[in-house]
Design a protein around this nucleic acid. Structure first.
Lengths: 151, 151
DNA sequence: AGCATATCCTATCTATCAAGTAGGATTCAA
DNA sequence: TTGAATCCTACTTGATAGATAGGATATGCT
């Protein structure tokens, strides 16, 4: 589960938009609020707009706003918009893998891993990410001490 | 959850070793069995050896074997040995992230995602991956039809 | 009309890394 | 001593991430 800089920035931008919803916020305000390179933020906002996750308004007083309610947009959608599929194995989607011999069962493993990732990112909305009021399942996952430990 | 070619190859090699355990198998046999570039397989086996997941025997009749019982080595260990940490956010471990403003709660989200990934890869042994007899939780994750659908 | 403030578009740069290759030194059993 | 294997160092190649640059275009205000 590697989240790129683009992905991280996109989510930070998205939760900032969620907090301000439905006001429009300029790219430079967003960049300043989250300490991101402004130009890079613009690129990312372009991705989010093309994915129809945000609307943009040009001109003075312009900026960006979420296209839907913050409770209705998942973190997963944001990540996919900027980084592509959540899960890939050697550049392929899990269900497209296929092996011979001892490895024949691996596709099921890859699919299970993807399902696990989805069960987090697709089940958390921007509103939840912004407020910290996560679904019970997510709270459970972070409850164990060792969830916070490196391995 | 991006699994690199190295990661995929490593797991395929590891389950092949699991199936043949405790016989030693040469790098070229392993490469042939899984249709991998031999030299690249050697590199990966070197990583696994340095991580003490496999033992090697030099000379004629030499090769590699799992250092522990196939039921006692997890897929997660293999992936970490060749690809580093299972989950990173912008090159950092989830628990090392920290944000201001609307993004303050994101570290919990990243930790939850990592926990979800671990709940798959750290809970499946090479023996299970080889036989396809996955733990119940994994079977459940792959049971739903839409687990096999792209998004 | 003119100006300030935005988005938007195209292009470019640079460093890093993944993936794979090459060649040979070393080890070991028969 | 020979053949088959691991092991070691180095290299190549292409793609990609993570930006940055400059300006064209749109909009609201006075």
């Amino acid at each position: 589960m590697q989240v790129s800089a683009r992905g991280e920035y996109a989510v930070r931008i998205a939760v900032t938009l969620a907090t301000g919803h439905p006001r429009t916020i300029s790219a430079s305000s967003l960049a300043a609020a989250q300490a991101l390179p402004r130009k890079f933020a613009e690129v990312i906002l372009g991705d989010l707009r093309r994915a129809h996750l945000v609307d943009s308004v040009r001109g003075v007083e312009g900026g960006y706003r979420l296209a839907r309610d913050p409770g209705d947009v998942s973190v997963g959608e944001v990540l996919r918009a900027v980084d592509g599929p959540l899960s890939e194995v050697r550049g392929r989607r899990p269900e497209e893998t296929s092996y011979e011999g001892a490895a024949v069962n691996l596709p099921r493993l890859w699919v299970a891993a993807r399902a696990a990732v989805r069960s987090v990112f697709d089940e958390v909305s921007l509103a939840q990410a912004a407020t910290g009021e996560f679904p019970v399942r997510i709270a459970e996952l972070t409850a164990a001490d060792d969830a916070w430990m490196p391995r």
